[in-house]
Amino acid sequence: MAVASAPNSGTTKFPLVIALGALMVAGAALVLAERFYRELEVRLAGVILDLITTSGVYVAPDRESVYFGLSSATPFGLRMTPECSSAFLLLPLLVVTMAMLYFRPANAKRLFFSLGISALVVVLVNQLRILTIVGLVHEFGTDEGYYWGHTLLGSMVSVLGGAVSLVLFVWLATRKKKA
């Protein structure tokens, strides 16, 4: 008769501790370096705007600002404030990933894949929000366009996009493999 040895619980928990620690560090980095993160978001917005507009774009990352319509009669600038950044929309995804990883460490690969896809969706949704504001300012002018773009439609885009990314994360992380 063979004797089965019990796994060493300290050894098997080590990768879980590393993964959870990495997620905590990522969350802390998002909070502590959120200004740097906003600078990156503004740079990305500038690249996208430069590709789709012909009226001139200028990015001032040190001011977390992107200016557009520079060759038009009404140039306009947007400043990325902390509450307009996607950084804090990523935190719930990290927390949910940590919780699911803690209870199902065997699903780590799938959870990190889901986190990556959902985080990309959050970043792209925030860029869509910026493009919404830019489009409405261009179409309806500074006052009315900014009001509708930032206050109403921009907020709706962020809320719906955040919800979609969270649902997408859970769906990707929990779907059954095909037989």
Score class of each variant (00 low, 15 high):
1 M>T: 13
2 A>E: 15
2 A>Q: 09
2 A>N: 11
2 A>G: 02
9 S>M: 11
11 T>W: 11
15 P>A: 04
15 P>Y: 09
15 P>Q: 09
17 V>T: 08
18 I>H: 10
19 A>W: 10
21 G>S: 03
22 A>L: 14
23 L>K: 09
24 M>D: 06
25 V>P: 05
26 A>F: 06
27 G>L: 04
28 A>C: 13
30 L>S: 06
31 V>H: 14
32 L>V: 05
34 E>V: 04
40 L>A: 12
40 L>C: 13
42 V>H: 07
45 A>D: 10
45 A>M: 04
46 G>I: 01
46 G>Q: 02
47 V>R: 03
48 I>G: 02
48 I>M: 09
50 D>P: 00
53 T>I: 06
53 T>M: 11
54 T>N: 14
60 A>H: 13
61 P>N: 07
65 S>M: 11
66 V>H: 07
67 Y>K: 09
67 Y>F: 14
68 F>C: 04
69 G>Y: 07
70 L>N: 12
73 A>K: 06
73 A>V: 11
74 T>W: 06
75 P>Q: 14
77 G>K: 05
79 R>V: 15
80 M>T: 03
80 M>N: 09
80 M>P: 07
80 M>D: 03
80 M>E: 07
82 P>N: 08
84 C>S: 05
87 A>D: 03
89 L>G: 07
90 L>E: 07
92 P>S: 06
93 L>Y: 00
98 M>S: 10
98 M>G: 09
103 F>A: 07
107 N>R: 07
108 A>C: 01
109 K>D: 03
111 L>G: 01
111 L>M: 10
115 L>E: 05
118 S>W: 02
119 A>Q: 04
122 V>A: 00
122 V>C: 00
124 L>Y: 01
124 L>C: 05
125 V>M: 02
125 V>F: 00
126 N>R: 01
126 N>E: 06
128 L>K: 00
129 R>F: 01
129 R>V: 01
130 I>L: 06
130 I>Q: 04
132 T>E: 08
133 I>W: 03
134 V>S: 03
134 V>F: 01
135 G>S: 15
136 L>F: 06
137 V>N: 08
137 V>E: 03
141 G>Y: 01
141 G>P: 08
141 G>D: 08
142 T>E: 14
142 T>D: 13
145 G>Y: 02
146 Y>A: 15
146 Y>R: 15
151 T>M: 12
153 L>M: 12
153 L>T: 12
155 S>D: 14
158 S>G: 11
158 S>F: 05
160 L>K: 02
164 V>F: 08
165 S>C: 00
169 F>D: 12
169 F>E: 07
169 F>Q: 09
174 T>Q: 07
175 R>N: 13
176 K>S: 14
177 K>V: 13
179 A>R: 15
